[in-house]
Design a protein around this nucleic acid. Structure first.
Length: 712
DNA sequence: CTTAGGG
DNA sequence: CCCTAAG
């Protein structure tokens, strides 16, 4: 449920590199955790924004430094204007959020998620509103930017959209403090004055003039807190929920897909188990989206009480500890972030810049602004074309003007794919920064091109007109999305292995059990074959793109799922950069990353069969414990599923079987056990259980194999 | 959290 | 594999 909801609100069109999830066993469901999520939204957003920032930054640094400089100077009138806009923006955002009950799920969105979400929602209502909103948002960023530094603007912006997020960031990163200060000064000082820090978010200035203030409050409690956070070290944050990016003991930084973490976090009352991360295999890796800037953002951690550090992170290293310090109590929430992250991956970050980078983040005031374009849909109006594209998110909404023959697109921003960065614990912050920068650069460096998606399908025929493609249709506009993709020509597969963390390696590939070579292969092949695997399952709008035939959909999906194993290697990955989707209707279910596929080996199958023979088919947990206890990637559900497939496999002709062939003998045993246990179960139901303890069933396999089951 | 099933 | 409904 949650997932879906999130998706709906968050990512409709977003495509993100796929990353394998943590073992299912580890994951938890958080049906009841919804509320908790609220507080954590920001964190996700933060992450998302970071990603966006990274992208932007790299881009800007590369190509738009000039624009930046230009932009900054203009502080005078513009500022005022901006401010006004900002207020407007804020207001709209608040309202929007308020309107969105599901704000809870907002996390899905990137930093600008809230805004985006709002936008989306608004868009539903009125296009004009959405536009306004967007522009206001943009303005806002501009405003802040102009006021102080880009960075500040970013912060302020982010704050507006997501206070929590900021606060979290702060807490999470060593340099957060710096930003926070700036931020406060520039963006929120007013607020504080007015209402005091506590109420900051709500009462602050005009910003939040809501028709119903309460709405805002109730809905965005977190935001309020965040304000507080900004001012005060996160550790002081009274709100337990304040989520921060949690750093694990591991040296790997990155956003983790693990649901596990997520779910734990969600549960307020969760057991201590939540903190056992370190022991978990999957947890070992901390994946975060960090940008150098990101790190910079958390300077004030030191401010936090050191004493609290030890809370949850017993053995953390100083470095991490520092970061963690403030967040110790928020570990829970942290997890949610991850999960959201997953979702958010797909989402656009409205304020990609919202985040954290101080410098180039908000370069172009116009970025993210909607533009009416006569030209190709792919064109964005921005301060600088390229820059805006990469950094700004695509507006999810495109509006169709019946009046003229123009189609209006608003691209709020683009999101960059999740980056997995792995560095040794002993790595310096500087090295981390470099690593991040390199990875980002790698993404941008290879060149990007814009892709157009309609109904999740990639529109490849560049010669088609919007009209022909259906993009001019109002309905279709809702499902229109843009993507940043690596240039066709280059797709240098830069896959790093996760294992060698020692040298700073930028691992854009997901941790995959598979051999790197394989991964690469998959990634490449997938990319080359089908640039937009994600879109396969969606309905084709057009015939112009190479759509996968329906019967091959399954295969495609499979491929897809496999490819997901990789976190897109920047250049190579098709979906490297996000998409902007728009409508929830159009959303695809697969936004959530799937775990990497790990075919059962024959030996595993044998172990499974053995266990099932002994334990029966209704005790998967026991089976897991007995035979797969150390196979963390095999959950009992996996085992159950495997058994299911085994039974099926055993029933079909050998020619129809795929994958690593399982000895017929084993399959026969499967059938035998299946038959036996089915019967056994039936007997039990019929209250006739105790009688038969031992059953021998013979199946006429081609080998005439006979399966025996021995019961106690 | 586990199971059991459907997708 | 994923997702859910049910214990």
């Amino acid at each position: 449920m949650m997932v879906k909801k999130r998706q709906d609100y968050g990512f409709s069109g977003f495509y993100v590199p796929f990353i394998p999830r943590a073992p299912r066993s580890a994951r938890r469901r958080g049906l009841h955790k919804k509320k908790v999520d609220d507080t954590q939204i920001c964190a996700f957003e933060l992450l998302a924004s970071l990603a966006g920032k990274l992208l932007q930054e790299s881009e800007s640094s590369a190509s738009s430094s000039a624009s930046e400089t230009n932009d900054q100077p203009a502080i005078g009138d513009d500022v005022i204007k901006q401010e006004r806009d900002e207020k407007k923006l804020l207001k709209t955002e608040c309202l929007d959020q308020g309107s969105c009950e599901e704000s809870v799920f907002i996390p899905e969105f990137a930093p600008s998620n809230n805004g985006k979400k709002c936008l989306l929602k608004k868009s539903q209502h009125t296009e004009s509103d959405s536009i306004l909103e967007r522009s206001s948002i943009i303005t806002n960023s501009d405003y802040s930017e102009k006021i102080s530094s880009n960075m500040k603007s970013v912060i302020s912006k982010s704050k507006t959209s997501c206070d929590n997020f900021l606060s979290k960031v702060e807490g999470g990163f060593p340099r957060a403090g710096e930003h926070s200060d700036d931020f406060v000064e520039n963006g929120f000082s007013r607020q504080r004055e007015a209402d005091g820090i506590e109420t900051g978010g709500l009462t602050t200035d005009n910003t939040f003039n809501l028709k119903d203030p309460m709405d805002l409050c109730t809905k965005f409690p977190t935001l309020i807190n965040s304000d507080n956070n900004v001012k005060f070290p996160s550790c002081r944050n009274p709100v337990p929920n304040a989520s921060i990016l949690r750093l694990r003991n591991d040296s790997k930084l990155g956003i983790r897909d693990d649901d596990e973490n997520f779910s734990r976090c969600n549960k307020p009352g969760t057991k201590p188990r939540a903190f056992r991360y370190p022991s978990h295999i999957g947890d070992r890796r901390i994946r975060k989206l960090l940008t150098s800037k990101y790190w910079k953002a958390a300077p004030k951690l030191k401010d936090c009480d050191q004493s609290k550090v030890g809370f949850l992170d017993g053995g953390m290293r100083p470095l991490y500890r520092k970061r963690k310090i403030c967040y110790s109590r928020e570990k829970y929430q942290h997890d949610p972030l991850y999960k959201r992250r997953k979702f958010s991956d797909h989402s656009l970050v409205v304020t990609s810049d919202g985040g954290f980078s101080s410098e180039s983040v908000c370069n172009s005031p116009e970025k993210g602004i909607n533009v009416d374009k006569n030209g190709p849909a792919t064109m964005f109006h921005g301060a600088n074309g390229v820059k805006s594209m990469s950094s700004s998110i695509i507006g999810h909404q495109a509006s169709f003007h019946s009046k003229d023959s123009h189609v209006k697109f608003s691209i709020k921003s683009f999101r960059i794919p999740e980056l997995l960065i792995e560095v040794p614990k002993t790595a310096t912050v500087g090295s981390l920064k470099r690593t991040v920068m390199e990875s980002v650069t790698a993404i941008l460096g290879s060149g990007l091109c814009v892709g157009v998606l309609l109904h999740g399908k990639k529109v490849r025929d560049d010669n088609r007109t919007l009209l022909q493609t259906g993009i001019s249709s109002k309905e279709n506009l809702d499902t229109l999305g843009f993507t940043l993709e690596p240039s066709p020509v280059q797709a240098p597969p830069t896959v790093c292995t996760e294992d060698p963390p020692i040298p700073l390696t930028c691992d854009t590939s997901q941790l995959s059990p598979r051999p790197p070579a394989l991964v690469l292969d998959m990634g490449i092949s997938d990319a080359s074959r089908d640039p937009s695997p994600l879109t396969n399952s969606s309905n084709n709008i057009d015939s112009n793109h190479e759509s996968v035939s329906s019967h091959t959909d399954k295969l495609a999906n499979k491929r897809l799922s496999e490819s997901r194993a990789l976190v897109a290697v920047p250049p190579a990955s098709v979906e490297a950069l996000a998409i902007v989707p728009v409508n929830q209707k159009a959303r695809r279910p697969e936004l959530v990353q799937r775990r990497t596929r790990r075919p059962f080996s024959v030996s595993e199958v044998e172990a499974l069969v053995r266990a099932v023979e002994e334990l029966g088919t209704g005790r998967w947990r026991d089976v897991k414990l007995r035979s797969f206890e150390h196979a963390d990637h095999r959950t009992y559900v996996d085992l159950k599923d495997k058994w299911k497939t085994l039974v099926h496999t055993a029933k079909i002709a050998p020619q129809q079987r795929r994958g690593e062939p399982v000895p017929q003998e084993v399959l026969d045993r499967v059938l035998a056990a299946h038959a036996y246990w089915s019967q056994h179960q039936a007997k039990q139901h019929s209250k006739n259980q105790g009688t038969v303890v031992k059953i021998t069933e013979a199946h006429g396999g081609r080998n005439g194999v006979e399966g025996e089951i021995h019961l106690l």
